[in-house]
């Protein structure tokens, strides 16, 4: 193995790193912004509101991200109407298509995560909010959502990691993210070990940093649940 190839071309990897970070953070942020209202609406008892959200979540969780990306990137071009309209300006760009697919994908998963934690709200909290005379919206904002976010955090951490790994698919539609950089190096120098092991190292570092930060956040958000320890308390066996 000869890692000097990598050292000479490390610039491509760092550009790829930038693309990966921008893609992942933008899609996560937009996805979360879509997911919160959808999750709240999904708990509605009105079937007409619930059904379309269910269908959206069902489709995006039941099909591979790769296929979703292909439908958007290659598929939309099949329709003259789309090609003629202004949205083609965006959908002809691979970059936008990847972002679009990632955003909807993470939105679907996140909707399901937040819905689960909204439905797990202890009834007493809702009762107390009502007794204090809060309106539905105020209750949602002050009581239900903050407590739901807290419960959703461990699962959402997983979703963030999944999105980070899923973003490597962007390289399939010509985007030079970390994986894309590795593929360029591999095809230019025919050095698969060096190229892909370097990409793997980049992703691992990113994953561990993310996990570490999320663990810290969990520690803060769950501080009130930590068992209280005193110096002379008997140790649990």
């Amino acid at each position: 193995m000869d890692f000097s190839i990598i050292l000479e071309n490390i610039g491509i990897y760092f550009e790829g790193l930038r693309t990966t970070l921008i893609l992942v953070s933008t899609s996560l942020l937009l996805g979360l912004m879509i997911a919160i209202p959808l999750a709240v609406l999904r708990t509605s008892k009105n079937y007409l509101i619930q059904a379309p959200i269910r269908a959206f979540v069902y489709f995006f969780r039941g099909t591979p991200l790769l296929v979703q990306m292909f439908i958007i990137y290659y598929g939309f071009g099949q329709f003259e109407a789309i090609k003629a309209s202004f949205v083609w300006f965006f959908f002809k760009e691979a970059w936008f298509c990847a972002l679009f697919a990632f955003t909807l994908n993470t939105a679907a998963y996140t909707t399901e995560i937040i819905r689960g934690s909204i439905e797990a709200t202890p009834h007493g909290e809702v009762e107390a909010a009502r007794a204090a005379g809060m309106s539905r919206l105020l209750m949602l904002r002050r009581i239900v959502l903050p407590s739901a976010f807290r419960r959703a955090l461990p699962q959402y951490s997983n979703e963030i990691i999944f999105m980070l790994h899923g973003s490597s698919l962007a390289s399939v539609i010509t985007i030079v993210d970390i994986t894309g950089a590795a593929r360029i190096i591999n095809s230019r120098f025919y050095s698969p070990y060096e190229a892909f092991l370097t990409a793997a190292a980049f992703y691992m570092t990113l994953t561990f940093i993310t996990v570490f930060l999320l663990k810290k956040l969990e520690g803060r958000w769950f501080a009130h649940l930590r068992p209280q320890t005193t110096s002379n308390a008997p140790k649990k066996v």
Binding site: L164, T179, P192, A195
Partner: peptide
């Protein structure tokens, strides 16, 4: 290790790396 690396990168590593 597995949980730190994307599936696609591992697959490309096995496919192209295995070839070499």
């Amino acid at each position: 290790i597995i949980r730190g690396i994307p599936d696609l990168v591992l697959m490309l590593l096995v496919f192209f790396g295995g070839q070499v």
